[in-house]
Structure formats: structure tokens, C-alpha cells
Design a protein around this nucleic acid. Structure first.
Lengths: 342, 342
DNA sequence: GTAAAGAAGGGAAACGATTACAGTCCATAA
DNA sequence: TTATGGACTGTAATCGTTTCCCTTCTTTAC
């Protein structure tokens, strides 16, 4: 392996000069510099990043910890972060929680021990003393969709409340009076906020959502199927159903088909997330778009500012990204029923 | 930051002893060892991985380079690799190609320069002197779904030919005589092999696929839609259509619905990949399951063997993973039409 | 009683960079 | 002519480990 030592010897200078020439970190005579660059190219010299890191205490790497690596959603997160990291010439060390609950702590320790300059952590549930663990992190940390008890940290999140409020308001706009909701798993911050947004919209329109119209789900398509079935088996049935995510809405589509209910004529439907699948349903699902790639980009950009000392790494900073409506045909809007997949 | 120096001073021993005690890499009196461990715990000492890497020339990190980070498929790859890496106590540095074509080379250089112990690279197309670049890699390298000109390397791949052959044979088994195919992008190794498997099945059954029944697609749902439309607009129409991946099959579903064709009564359909969406179609799509998570696991395990010197890193090694049929209702099989989403 | 072996631990050289400090040389200003 | 300051370059410390090679003891075998 060719190192600075060798290049220095070949060029007849000291390694300090080689370093200065390569990094432009000090004055070097133009002729010397050219000679060094020439030799470096010739011998395919690449600086050893480990040695450099040891010396500079920077790794040019950021860590990303996700609860799981399962579907499109998490892939989009990674993509957003990967792109932004690439733009900033940073590497990306990823890991998931790996089934264990408090493993997030372990991983954070690993990552905080010098392998990365900073960490982006997605932790939608704040159990098992997560907050205490995070406090001990020695590196800059940015949270994504954090639990409610994480106010002291830096985080970026989707405005679930606003998104849910907006889409339920849209359903009211269609004239539906009886709106049902299929919720997400209890304790999940995203699920809770979406429920609250829905309830608030009901209150604001003087048409509060009836408790019997709130059916628990767990974000899976299967749970959406059964929740929808139960909603429609009641004496009084909703005219429109808002599922807390698109996967459950998909389950509801299946259930509606089983019951021979037409969407939206017999029952209107709306979802949340704007996943790719929702474009392929007929009619296209009306849903809430979450700017997930942007969430990742913003997190990286802010993290880098923390790392570079451009902002105070210990000061809390919160940003909520607005979710936007995507109108399909499932809510009753006519014009947009797309026949051709995107 | 507390380092070995400090622990050594506190314990009244040299750093060499601390290192030996912590790594069990040499004899240390039990009492001394206990004292050191005690202090290490007390002061929350964690060895600096960068310094260790510099000394040992190992990073405990493996690199993963993917063409893109787009859908479920790539997420599954990452998951398989992440899980296996975690089991082996390795970290994972990921990156995508980032639009540029020859960026794969650049990234490989980066990764080969000491930041990782080995690299897993997925490169379904072998253009722009990829092979020459790979030859210059200084670290162990494992390819996934490699192009045809990569015989000299270690790779793991899905047996596309066998999978395509099997599913087309299944269609013939239903008694269909006229089978059409929607192909993937030209030059993509997976696409080519699936086409070949289909053609071979036709030949073996003395019912060669007619050239007019082979319609080009590009793996997108949209292309599947249009290819299906074109297939069905011909004078002589196929009785069954095999799409080279599930996304295109989804497009075909949409097209069939537009044309008021019932699946499978009017037209049978089959796909490839067994993506999650295919379970949600009605009738469920008959497709080919690709053991994608297993592909990742195997790649990691072999890479680690190369890194540890348990196998010759410079010797070629090839493994093809068998793809299995997933029978849904879209091919004409009755029994399995699932009404409830998984 | 002595030699050899092995355990315990210390000193110092790697690993491959960055960088503070200091020295040399030369041009310019006083 | 002599400071003075800037450009250029080298020496060596530093980052935090691992590990080779000793030295010093303690056993154990003969």
C-alpha cells in the first residue's frame, strides 16, 4: 500500500509537505506541488481515511438508525439521507434496531464511540428510558418522528395532526356527516397524532366522530380489512372512512370489494402516507402525501451544521414538515380518477 | 474522552497490559484484570474504533453499493445484509450509484481505500469498463446479480432462467397454447435471463413463443400497462401473459380492467419477484418468489469468509439461488384465490 | 540447587495521517 | 546594511490503539 511516506520519499520532500500539497493546507512551491500531485497520480495514492480520522477526529460518516428495514417507507427515508449525504461528501453507516427493544441504546453507544460524526435516529416510540440514553450521546443527534418526551433534542417530523385534519376536513367538504376512522397502533406517535387530527376536525365541524366509528388497527393491510368489516357491520354505518395509513386503506379496499360496496359511491375512503401502491388502486386512493425524502434531506443538512459548529449542537431545534393532500377518486372527487398507472 | 492511557494510569499498569486485559490477548494476572475491568466500567471506557482500525487494519465494516434505493426490492436486499452483518458484529456502510454511470467505480475506490474490509456490489449492468474497475479493487468483493462478463469474480445471483422457465411451464400446464411475454429493459441481465427462460420453455413444449407476442417493457408498471394493451390489440391474442416482473404485471392488471378482460378467465397473468403488492391483487398474482433476503445473507457470509482468509479471496465462486413458484389465482388455479390480504 | 519454562507486565515501535513549531531563504522597507 | 516579514519546508508530537520484544518473577522438573 502506497502511503504518504512513499510519495514524500519519491518527491524528495517531507511528509508534511506532501500533506500540505494535497490538502492545500499551507504554502507549497508550485513546482513541488505539481511534482507531488504527479507522483500521487502515478502511484495511485489515496490517503488512508482511518489515519486521517484518527488525526482530525472526524470520520466524514454519519450514522442512521431505523426501527426496521421493511417497506417502501423506510427505503425512501434512506434514499433521502443517502442523496444528501452524497452531496455533502459524507458516508452513511446504517443499522436497524434488530428486534431487541433497547438495542437502540446499544447501537447509539456504538455509533457515538467515534465511528461517526453524528447520528440520525428514527424512534417513533420512546420507551425503555430512550430519552436517558439519548442524553448520554456524545455526538450530534437528530431525531426523526420522535416520541413526545423528546422535546429537549433536535428533531424533524411530519405534521401528522395537520395532515389528518386536512384530509378529514376534505371528507366533510364532500358532505359526509358520518366519518369513521381506522387507527394505528396504540403508543405510536404518528398514529396518535393522526387520530387527534381527525377528532379535532370533527369537533371543528360540529360533527364529532362517534366512538363506535373509531376502530383500532395496527398499520397492516390485514388489520385494515377487519377494521373496515367491523365498521360496516354496525347498525349505523359511516359514509366515509379515514384509515391512518395507506396499507390499512388497501385492506379496506379489499373488504369493500368483498362486501360489494362501490368506492366512492357506497363508501368513501381516504388514507395517509401516499405510498406507491395507492396510485395503482382504482379509483386512486385519496391520501396525504408525507415529504419523506425531504425529511431525510433536512435532517442531514441540519446534522452537518451541528457537526460543523454552525449551530449549537446542544440546543433543541424542532421542525414540522407539512403534509399535503393527494386527491384521488376514492373520496368522491370525480375528475382525477386515473386510468393509467403513473 | 477517556482512553487507555487514563485507565492504565488509574490502574497503575501500562497501556499494553490494559490492552491485553481487555482483549484477552495475552496473560494478565486475574487481580489486575479485574481491577482494569472495574475501572473501565466505572469510567465508561470504550475503545476508539478508529485507532483500533489503524492498528489492526480491520474496520469491522462492510460496504454495500446498490444501483438505486428505490423500492421494496432494494429494501429487502439491505435488510438481509443488515441482519447478517449484525449477527457477525459488523457495521454496514451503504451507498447508491447516484445517477452517474461510472460512479460505481468511484465509490468502489472510496470503499476500497480502507474504510471497509470488503464490499458487496450489486451491478446488473456491466458497462463502462466495470470489470476493469473491479479488478483493481484491493479488498474482497462479492457481486450480486452480476453481468455476464463477471465470471472471474465471486457472485451470488437469482436463477432467473430457471424461475422463468418454471412459471411458463406452469402456464403451459394450464393448457394455454399462446403465451405472450412482457420483457424487461434491454441489457439488464435479469431481464435477459427471464426472457431466455421463457423462450426455452416454449421450445421444450414445441410451442415456441411467437415474436409478435414478445413485447418490450422496462420494469415499470406503466410500461406493463402499455405492453399489455399492445399485446391485446393484435389480431391473434395470447391466452396468457408472463410479465418479467410484478410491477409490469400490476400494469397489466390495470390494462385488463380497462379492457374489461377478466383474470384469469379471459386472460391469464403471471409475474416475477413476488413483491408485497402482488399479494394484494385480486386474484392474487401467480409469480416467482426470489429469495432476496437469503441472497444478501449468503453474500455477507461468504464475504466474511473471504475477509477472514477462510476462503481464497481471489478465487471465483458462483452460486445461483433457486427461485420458487408462488401460485395465485391469476394463472387459472382456482383453489388459492385469497380474499383476505395477508 | 539449578536450569528451563512460562506467567506477568513494561517499553516502544508500528499504523498513516495532521499540524504546531521552528528554521531557512529571499525580497523589501527603513 | 540590517531588520522584518512572508514563503517554503522540515522535525516531531499527536491521535488511541495493538503488538513485538524484552525483563522480571515464579514455578516446575531434574
Amino acid at each position: 500500500m502506497v502511503n504518504m511516506q512513499k510519495i514524500a520519499a519519491l518527491a524528495g520532500v517531507s511528509i508534511a509537505t506532501v500533506s500540505r500539497a494535497l490538502n492545500k493546507s499551507g504554502p507549497v512551491k508550485e513546482a513541488t506541488r505539481a511534482r507531488i500531485l504527479q507522483l500521487a497520480g502515478e502511484y495511485q495514492y489515496t490517503p488512508n481515511p482511518i489515519a486521517r480520522s484518527l488525526s482530525t477526529q472526524k470520520t466524514d460518516t454519519i450514522g442512521l438508525i431505523l426501527p426496521e428495514m421493511a417497506d417502501e417507507f423506510f427505503m425512501d427515508i434512506i434514499r433521502g439521507i443517502d442523496e444528501e449525504a452524497y452531496r455533502a461528501n459524507r458516508f452513511l453507516l446504517v443499522s436497524s434496531f434488530h428486534t431487541q427493544r433497547d438495542i437502540a441504546a446499544t447501537l447509539l453507544e456504538f455509533m457515538s464511540s467515534g465511528r461517526v460524526d453524528g447520528v440520525i435516529l428514527m424512534a417513533p416510540e420512546g420507551k425503555n428510558g430512550l430519552v436517558e440514553t439519548l442524553r448520554r450521546s456524545r455526538r450530534p443527534l437528530v431525531l426523526l418522528n420522535p416520541p413526545g418526551n423528546a422535546q429537549e433534542f433536535v428533531y424533524f417530523k411530519i405534521n401528522n395532526f395537520q395532515g389528518a385534519y386536512a384530509i378529514v376536513e376534505h371528507l366533510f367538504g364532500h358532505g359526509y356527516h358520518r366519518i369513521g376512522m381506522i387507527t394505528g397502533p396504540n403508543g405510536n406517535i404518528d398514529a396518535d397524532e393522526r387520530l387527534n387530527g381527525c377528532l379535532e376536525a370533527g369537533r371543528q365541524h360540529d360533527l364529532p366522530i362517534a366512538p363506535s366509528f373509531i376502530m383500532p388497527g395496527d398499520f397492516s393491510a390485514r388489520s385494515g380489512y377487519y377494521a373496515f368489516m367491523r365498521l360496516m357491520s354496525q347498525m349505523e354505518k359511516p359514509e366515509a372512512v379515514f384509515a391512518a395509513n395507506d396499507m390499512m386503506a388497501m385492506g379496506a379496499y379489499q373488504a369493500a370489494r368483498s362486501l360489494n360496496l362501490r368506492i366512492p359511491q357506497d363508501i368513501a375512503l381516504a388514507g395517509f402516507d401516499d405510498i406507491f401502491l395507492s396510485q395503482l388502486l382504482t379509483p386512486r386512493l385519496t391520501t396525504v402525501h408525507v415529504p419523506i425524502v425531504e425529511l431525510g434531506s433536512k435532517a442531514v443538512r441540519y446534522l452537518l451544521q451541528m457537526i460543523n459548529g454552525e449551530v449549537d449542537p446542544s440546543a433543541p431545534y424542532h421542525e414540522e414538515l407539512t403534509a399535503g393532500l393527494v386527491i384521488g377518486g376514492s373520496c368522491g372527487c370525480e375528475s382525477v380518477a386515473a386510468a393509467v398507472p403513473l
